[in-house]
Write a protein that binds this DNA or RNA. Sequence first.
DNA 1: GCTGGTGGTGTACCGCAAGTCAACCTGCGG
DNA 2: CCGCAGGTTGACTTGCGGTACACCACCAGC
Lengths: 194, 194
Amino acid sequence: MTTTREKLLDVAADLFYTQGFQSVGIDQIYGQVGITKTAFYKHFESKDDLIIAVLNRRDQRELEEWGNYIRIRGRDDSRRQLSAFFELLEEWFSKPDFRGCFFLNALTEFPNENDPINRAACAHGEHLASMMLRFAAAAGADDPAALTQQLMLLITGAISSRHRTGDLGAAKTATRVAHVLIETHCGRAALTAR
Amino acid sequence: MTTTREKLLDVAADLFYTQGFQSVGIDQIYGQVGITKTAFYKHFESKDDLIIAVLNRRDQRELEEWGNYIRIRGRDDSRRQLSAFFELLEEWFSKPDFRGCFFLNALTEFPNENDPINRAACAHGEHLASMMLRFAAAAGADDPAALTQQLMLLITGAISSRHRTGDLGAAKTATRVAHVLIETHCGRAALTAR
DNA sequence: GCTGGTGGTGTACCGCAAGTCAACCTGCGG
DNA sequence: CCGCAGGTTGACTTGCGGTACACCACCAGC
């Protein structure tokens, strides 16, 4: 049994992702769930409140999913774990309903840094980066923080490129570059990041 | 003497960039210029029309600026020209009013591919890529299209990273990776992209 | 000297979305 | 039997995008 609140979050997440946050009216959301406006406002204080809840829930779930995927695909090899991030991108990009990164999108729709929505969206990137940092450290990178920065840049770039051009090959492009970086930073005679 | 239309475009470009397209009302725009709503609608058919005009003008100007910068900084050395793209990023990122890429932002605020705003925003990326492609070809890259794809991915990633984390070092990170790629693709014994 | 285009003004109005308010209904556990 | 969570209806306010209509001032050309 899914509660009404859960249903609202599901519908909202879907609409927000496909159409953007600002262009979706709450009437579409509560209408699709089958309740009235007043009922909606018993679950969420405001549209912003709903957006933040959607963002936080998706942050948690996505982090879990990514973590599981990487542990499974990466086996016990830390370097494979790092490159698993990019295999995941490939799968993601091939989905027809791909519309970029939910959190990156939120960030550009709410550019004010003091906006709680902006903060919630930023948090996801930080969570993902700190997860990657652990893998990079485990892989014996000479400078795990630098490697994480570079790989995160590649991931962000791949997502934005795929989003902009619709090019499915963006993941492969990023993967190739990532392998070079991983080899360089985790090689036996690892070079400095300069 | 700047025409009213030009003033409207200037004010709109500024507000849209700093606050986003949807969250800026046209009343702010015509108010700041000092005309009334009716007068505004004698210059532009709609808000969408204004947005497209702003986008197109900025596309032209930015392309010109980038082209000039690269020709000056790159001198006659094609490889230097390619890496000048990244030097430009560094300068751009250090500006306090940096808010990401205007066109990438437009794209996420108007995700519908049939939306003329979306098309106008996409166009900029294509223009930039085709400019880069010419430089890549001139630099004697083994596969100019592939190199362009990779460098564009890096640029996009750097912009988004800087936007998300506020990290000024994103440009340097991208530059380092770019140099590796340029060397690999333009080396005397150039390897294939695979 | 009248005509027309350009670039304005003011006011009133429509439709839609966010959000509020008040009054009322219903099922369920303590 | 009470209270509360979750729901309903309907009327209302505010703000924004956009329209309609009537009017004004200036400058250029035949």
